[in-house]
Design a protein around this nucleic acid. Structure first.
Lengths: 259, 259
DNA sequence: ACACGTTTACGCAAAAATGCGCTAATCTTG
DNA sequence: CAAGATTAGCGCATTTTTGCGTAAACGTGT
């Protein structure tokens, strides 16, 4: 059954008459909690105040104000809900079910961001309405017996976990959980927390080396042979090799959206 | 300089008073043109009609109508501008510069889709306003001496090329350029077109096999030993292995957006 | 001062992957 | 029926990667 589409000779591009959705952003801001025996990947939640399911833990979010950008809105959401300024965020996915919000037609643009644990704690340790929820198998351990996040925030977290694991399979600590200089052990612990998988030291060191610059300086104050400090190689350089197969060939089936 | 953020005790979530942007979608619909000695990856363009820079070649796009979804709008854009129905699309990126459209505040959600060459030709061969533009080094060969695509469509094509190459490094022909049954040579030609790189037959066959199901049937009508036909293994199966390093360890620096 | 634990880095064997030559099998064409 | 073209797999050399044992270097406790 072949139906030929009649191509319109002209189509009104005047914006009058096109209703438009409200645009919200949600942010999965991630950090690495080093407090347990093994550092672990977390997502920062805030507890909602009066006016919107008070007391419920949620990802920070915010409506886009007039002529504002998504990333600016996302950063404001993080600032207002988590007390953290100046975070870099990236888009993940747009959720566009017209019935997803009972208040009206709203699209939500999910974002992902990363923050070091030190900077996270520095900004939020005094706040009782901010919580770092650890991630287990793409799910969050929510506090206060809460069973699930509102709207599609559960899916947002899954998207975020998948995306950060993908990026960490390509480059050393692209999310800058670590400061500018770090040891191989610190780097490996971060990668293990992100990938939720054990990574062999030898293999890891060999594949990181091409993307790291030895500083010539060594760590001090720890037990054992002092570790050399490294910096990330500037990845804008055209000579940066991508990681070898062992980082990328992690035994995980790419269960992800394809065409 | 530490500035504590005053968390609001309540925030108005009523949608009144929030201006909102118009939402457009753009689609980079990709196909594999087999007509030359080597098949090559193409993006489908349409020539704009009266009312909007008549005569300019562009990616199909469309404003989101009231309470419609992004994917439905993208599919309608493809249907109306390219004459192709029922394409699957995926989101790539949201372009949100408030000054990007002189007519007003518009955000554009870029999408990627794929279509077999046969189905593409079947729907568009009679149309003079549809063109399959070959991709060279992330750029398009535009017809009629046109130097560049409008708005951010050049970037959209780059996003699309990167995304399709990434997906083709993970699974055999996830974009279904090929029909349900195909030979290894056909599969390899498609992968070579997408990756724009030579792929050795032996290595390719070894890494594809775990994700393919031999049908027991053979191709006919060609010269030489008939090749066996394969189907893609259902990737929802938990036993599907991801591709080995040789497909993924292609010498390309991941020059892409990270945090 | 020494033993011990911890960490780093290297040498080396083992394992895995790659690429090529070769061959057998099978089809089409003349 | 012969020749050419193509597919597919095997054997094997080479290359690459992995993982382990070990030495070196440090801090801590005795």
């Amino acid at each position: 059954m072949e139906k030929k589409i009649q191509l319109p000779t002209s189509e009104s591009h005047d914006l009058q008459g096109f209703p438009c959705p409200h645009i919200a952003v949600d942010v999965a801001l991630m950090s690495i909690d080093p407090r347990d025996e093994y550092p672990k990947l977390c997502v920062l939640l805030h507890r909602r105040g009066p006016g919107h399911v008070e007391g419920m833990w949620a990802l920070p979010g915010r409506f886009v104000r007039e002529r504002d950008t998504l990333s600016n809105t996302a950063e404001q959401a993080v600032a207002l809900k988590l007390g953290i300024q100046g975070t870099n965020v990236q888009q993940l996915h747009v959720f566009d079910d017209p019935d997803r919000d009972p208040r009206g037609w709203v699209m939500s643009v999910a974002h992902i961001g990363t923050i070091s644990w030190e900077r996270c704690i520095e900004n939020t340790h005094h706040l009782r309405d901010v919580f770092a929820a650890p991630i287990r198998d793409h799910e969050l351990d929510l506090p206060d017996g809460q069973s699930r996040l509102p709207y599609e925030q559960r899916e947002i977290v899954r998207y975020a976990v998948k995306e950060i694991r993908r990026q960490y399979s390509l480059l050393p600590d692209p999310g800058h959980f670590l400061p500018d200089e770090f040891t191989l052990l610190q780097l490996r612990e971060v990668h293990q927390a992100v990938q939720d998988d054990e990574i062999k030291a030898d293999t890891f060191r060999r594949e990181m080396k091409p993307n790291l610059i030895p500083t010539g300086e060594f760590s001090s104050g720890g037990v054992g042979k002092p570790a050399e400090l490294y910096r990330r190689r500037d990845r804008s350089s055209s000579t940066v090799p991508s990681l070898s197969r062992s980082t990328r060939n992690r035994r995980r089936t790419p269960v992800e959206e394809t065409f």
